[in-house]
Design a protein around this nucleic acid. Structure first.
Length: 444
RNA sequence: GGAGACGUCGCAUAGUUGGUCUAGUGCGCCACAUUGGAAAUGUGGUAUACCCGCAAGGGUAUCAAGGGUUCGAAUCCCUUCGUCUCCGCCA
């Protein structure tokens, strides 16, 4: 992952970027230690606190010396004994330099460790190492019982000429797909439907780039540590450019208001973002290789909200409901999972996956993921708002949920809505966007 | 891709022979005064982060970002990022 000038794009951050507030860690070390434990991340709390204490000590010393130096510099122009003052100033500079070097070293180390402290999970999250500890929050709809032999997605796609997997793999490589004819129309109709629904619920539609800088991806807080190489299994880096392909519009929207101080009156900011999504899926070799499930590139509509921290739960439930409503509009049986502490990821407070029923697998498969992030991402992006009345500057809370993932949603869609002749029924909500058709495919 | 210009405290601007710039001015915003109320006007205020301190208060840093020269940098040098204008190319 080297670019043309020989510089490694996997750089380390300079300056102090916090995921959790150092003050919070200072005051609540036990909570942080517990979070590391239940999320399965190494616990550096003690070293962080030691570094923090030494850094503050060094700052006090160096800042006091700098103050003296500045004072001397101000006196020099009007002094009659410039030489003495200049000499004294140089002396102080030398002292500062050595302390600053220790300070820089300690801050760098602290910064690295701060990037490794996970977000504190919510009390309601089941504690466990992985997805086996997840719990079921609710189940909606009843899996359909077929009075004929239901076909798996790939058979339906084959018989209707809706894709060309071998051809596309030959042309474009493994884990790519194409949609042809009515399936492509359906894909677009679903995308449009979801975007319009979110717009009607107060979201601002935004089309996002997929090409982005590595630090933008890093600022979304999915990755642990400050070394960008942690992204290498998940993110495509463009050769000869300090650019990567974003895995989701969440990454772009997350940085949309970076370094801004928003007015409290502007909140909440709700975005419905669309972008092509790119994932290396390097750790998924051999999994989901058949059908429209897992690709290096796909499309996604993403819900994303910036709000006041105290409104987090309200909007989180709203995002979750939006996806549930979309499942119901698409007439798909689904369930909502509450993800365990070990399954929710580094930057999340809590997470609920939405899974749709897939008849050919006789199980539910993930279609979307709703995540409560708190101020974790906004600390990385420095996205804040000014509180009315107090005028205090505070970090925004952020959260995100899938709006719809394409083409994956077609898997449960075409299987659940299939007919014996291989045709697929179109739910009422979608018919206007499909030119009024009530079904597609089959032997017309 | 080629050539040139540029990036200042919410917005617009002043400031580039280094030191009264701890950044001026206008607009906006907030408070107060004036008013029956408002407009207009007047006065004052109006960044962020961190460090020390019980507090009052003091200090450090930030003029796109990072580094350098210097006793001292918005001003000089280097790098990076970004913007604009022509040309080229093109959905």
């Amino acid at each position: 992952m080297h670019c043309r000038n020989g510089r490694n794009i996997l750089f380390k951050f300079k300056g102090t970027i916090k995921m959790l507030d150092i003050k919070f860690i200072r005051e609540n070390p036990d909570i942080v230690k517990h979070a590391c434990q239940v999320k399965n991340f190494p616990d550096h709390t003690s070293e962080i606190l030691d570094l923090d204490a030494r850094i503050r000590e060094l700052k006090t010393i160096t800042q006091n010396k700098t103050a003296e130096k500045n004072k001397i510099s101000r006196e020099i122009p009007t002094s009659s004994d410039k030489a003495t003052l200049v000499a004294r100033s140089k002396e102080i500079s030398a002292e500062i330099a050595s302390e600053m070097s220790e300070l820089a070293e300690k801050e760098s180390r602290l910064n690295d460790l701060m990037h490794c402290v996970p977000q504190i999970p919510d009390d309601t999250a089941p504690i466990g190492d992985d997805d086996t500890a997840n719990t079921i929050l609710k189940v909606m709809g009843t899996p359909r019982t077929f009075d004929f032999t239901a076909r798996p997605q790939w058979d339906l796609l084959d018989m209707n000429g809706w894709w060309a997997p071998e051809k596309i793999s030959k042309i474009c490589g493994a884990r790519t797909y194409c949609l042809i004819g009515e399936a492509a129309e359906l894909d677009l109709a679903i995308q449009t439907y979801v975007i319009q629904k979110l717009i009607s619920r107060g979201f601002k539609y935004i089309e996002c780039p997929s090409i982005t800088k590595p630090e933008t991806i890093f600022n979304a807080g999915h990755f642990v540590g400050s070394d960008m190489s942690v992204m290498k299994n998940d993110v495509f880096a463009l050769n000869d450019e300090d650019k990567c392909l974003a895995g989701t519009a969440e990454i772009i929207i997350n940085s949309l208001h970076s370094d801004e101080i928003l007015s409290e009156n502007e909140l909440p900011l709700k975005y419905a973002g669309f972008s092509p999504c790119f994932r290396r899926e390097a750790g998924a070799a051999g999994r989901d290789t058949r059908g429209l499930v897992r690709f290096h590139q796909f499309n996604k509509v993403e819900q994303y909200v910036f709000c006041r921290p105290q409104d987090s739960e309200k909007f989180y439930q709203e995002l979750l409901k939006n996806l549930c409503d979309i499942m119901e509009d698409l007439e798909l049986p689904y369930r909502v999972i509450t993800n365990s502490t070990g399954d929710m990821g580094f930057n999340k407070i809590k997470m609920n996956d939405v899974e749709a029923w897939v008849p050919s697998e006789n199980t539910y498969r993930e279609l979307g993921s709703c995540s409560l992030i708190g101020t974790f991402q906004s600390r990385r992006t420095n996205t804040r708002y000014r509180e009315n009345g107090t005028n205090e500057v505070k970090f925004c809370a952020t959260m995100n949920n899938t709006g719809i993932a394409l083409p994956r949603v077609l898997v449960p869609f075409i299987e659940n809505h299939q007919n014996p002749d291989g045709s697929v029924n179109i739910p009422k909500a979608l018919q206007p966007l499909m030119g009024g058709r009530t079904k597609i495919g089959g032997k017309h």
